[in-house]
Amino acid sequence: MNFNFLSPVSDSVLAHNELLSLQALGRKIKIHSSQNGIPDLDDVNIAIIGVLENRNDINYIGQDFQLDEIRKSFYSLYPGSWNVTVADLGDINKGESVEDTYFALRESVSILVKKGVIPVILGGSQDITYANYRAYDGLIPMVNIVNVDAKFNLGDSTKPIKNNSFVGKIILDQPYNLFNYATIGYQTYFNSQEEIDLMDSLYFESYRLGQVSKDISIVEPVLRDANIVSIDLTSVKSSELSLNQKYSPNGLDGKEICAISRYAGISNKVTSFGIYEYVPSKDDTITSMLVAQMIWYFVEGVNFRVKDDDFSDDRNYQKFITLVESEELVFYKSNKTGRWWIEIPFLSEVNNKLKRHTLLPCMHQDYLDACNNKVPDRWFKAFQKNCV
């Protein structure tokens, strides 16, 4: 396996790890060390990779950073009653150019996903999501991305990629593999009206912070449908974070960001998960512990994955049909988990992008709305995208 790009976990973290209880996570996971090299990945389910790249941050002034505090915090936690195996593969250092770093991550993610290992990427600037997305070019035909962020990051895609414009690049750069892009926790005053209108015109999904805080469960279906989940730590409110990490007085709280991480883990489709915009500071224990707990909840979610979307055997599900206006909507409910899906009809006369996306995750509430003659928003957007 060619993981030449990865440097081992630092000796100071390993020394700290030796002082931990034998029951702690750090004593139970496989770790890439300078002494033992890269661990064998045959029985590994989740692999942590640090990416020490932040040169495309719009506020970059030459500062370096490291992820040691996150590792110390994560290693010190205790695992749940898990059947999953976690490895820490160390860090991808800055390449000669940012493109070199992107290449290293793309190759690493591609190798891991092909092996059935879920990479958890810990990063500097969030433009690294672009490299994560490009790793899927040869893996699956269409990709769904969920971005947990206060901003849409569409930016000006005619200019070089930055951490506030990488989504524009993902949408416009060939090959065009993006099917759905959804933002969770956006805050209207951080986004221009043009960007909000563009999200609507492309039939992408967006969930305002207020909606998410009112009922966190509304984001579960969109995370169930995601391949890539990318979290920007600036989406978390400043009172939850360390000094250098503070961004906005409003944002997701610690419980909400951990719930979102767990939903991402439970999703059978999510094959890579990234946490970005980490900025160490002198009083850093709060942010590093929050990130550690987010990883913990993601692992916990992966451990509780249930294959409940096999609709070939009618003993596995219940089927509900309802009429909305003149449209027949077909819903499925899993007998194993109680999760809901809605069918998107094929349009035989158009080029169908949705060959593998005929069933769209939804909520019980969508079925209740349909019974009251209201078209579910997710269904409408997917249907429209399929017509384009």
Results as ranks from 00 to 15, higher is better:
70 I>S: 08
52 L>G: 15
259 A>Q: 12
202 L>Y: 05
274 G>W: 02
264 A>G: 01
113 V>W: 12
40 D>S: 04
97 S>D: 07
220 E>Q: 13
258 C>A: 14
339 R>I: 03
187 Q>Y: 04
186 Y>S: 06
379 W>E: 07
56 N>A: 12
18 E>V: 11
338 G>W: 05
57 D>S: 15
144 N>C: 00
180 N>V: 03
260 I>K: 13
295 I>W: 09
151 K>C: 10
362 C>F: 00
196 I>L: 08
365 Q>H: 05
225 D>L: 00
339 R>M: 08
46 I>V: 15
341 W>D: 13
66 Q>I: 04
241 L>W: 03
133 Y>V: 01
369 D>W: 02
19 L>R: 11
176 Y>T: 12
15 A>F: 05
246 K>S: 03
24 A>P: 02
288 S>E: 09
384 Q>F: 05
92 I>T: 04
327 E>R: 08
323 L>K: 06
73 S>G: 10
246 K>L: 00
197 D>S: 12
281 S>E: 02
136 Y>T: 06
315 R>V: 14
77 L>M: 05
157 S>R: 07
284 D>F: 08
287 T>Q: 08
125 S>C: 15
237 K>V: 06
130 Y>I: 01
45 N>E: 01
208 R>V: 12
306 V>G: 01
230 S>Y: 03
147 N>C: 02
167 V>M: 12
280 P>K: 10
126 Q>V: 02
253 D>G: 15
195 E>M: 13
4 N>R: 10
85 T>M: 02
275 I>A: 13
123 G>P: 02
219 V>K: 00
220 E>D: 13
305 R>Y: 04
63 Q>F: 09
199 M>Q: 03
305 R>D: 06
297 Y>G: 06
112 L>D: 11
216 I>C: 10
210 G>A: 15
107 E>P: 12
370 A>G: 02
379 W>G: 07
35 Q>D: 08
52 L>N: 15
102 Y>Q: 03
270 V>C: 12
71 R>V: 14
74 F>S: 09
73 S>M: 03
199 M>Y: 09
115 K>N: 14
207 Y>V: 08
32 H>E: 06
233 L>S: 10
114 K>N: 14
129 T>W: 03
283 D>T: 04
256 E>T: 08
8 P>W: 10
365 Q>E: 04
62 G>C: 10
315 R>M: 13
210 G>S: 15
136 Y>Q: 03
82 W>A: 09
135 A>S: 15
208 R>Q: 11
113 V>F: 14
9 V>G: 09
5 F>W: 11
181 Y>W: 02
184 I>L: 09
136 Y>V: 03
30 K>C: 02
140 I>M: 15
362 C>H: 00
212 V>L: 08
149 D>L: 01
49 I>V: 15
100 D>L: 12
229 V>F: 13
369 D>R: 03
195 E>V: 11
144 N>I: 01
